[in-house]
Amino acid sequence: MGNMITVTVNGKEHSGGVEGRTLLVDYLREHLGLTGTHIGCDTSSCGACTIHMDGKAVKSCTVLAVQADGSEVTTVEGLANNGSLHPIQEGFKEEHGLQCGFCTPGMMMTATDLLKNNPNPTEDEIRHALEGNFCRCTGYHNIVKSIQYAAKKMQSPA
């Protein structure tokens, strides 16, 4: 397992050896057992594997695990804070933004990146921001509403 890496995932430091070819998504799922991050395609298209690396949404199927050495990674498992749901998680539940749940982690990770850079996006901006995330269940209608819910919530914390 030629390459030693240290990655901080959801606030916890992990060290271990990986093959050069190991994708970050496989490292998260297979090495760390964080199976909330999903794999939906092999062409870097669907976005199911989206995580945050050093604060930015990235497709973890298109980053080598070795490239994450020294990075801070947040996955869906790290979205909630001390047991209280992140507003985006709340939004997806309140607005029925998920059905089968498979694309949901990636959707939420992309949406949080969007809201960080654009706290009050228009519907068009939300739809454009989801270009790299496929959902086959919801027709995106309620995903848009979920993100609007979170945007509102994040602007006026309870």
Binding site: S44, G47, T50, K56, A57, V58, K59, T62, V63, T110, D113, L114, A129, E131, G132, N133
Partner: peptide
């Protein structure tokens, strides 16, 4: 180009 995630990397 691409999407948010692609543009980030």
């Amino acid at each position: 180009i691409g999407d948010i995630q692609v543009r980030n990397v």
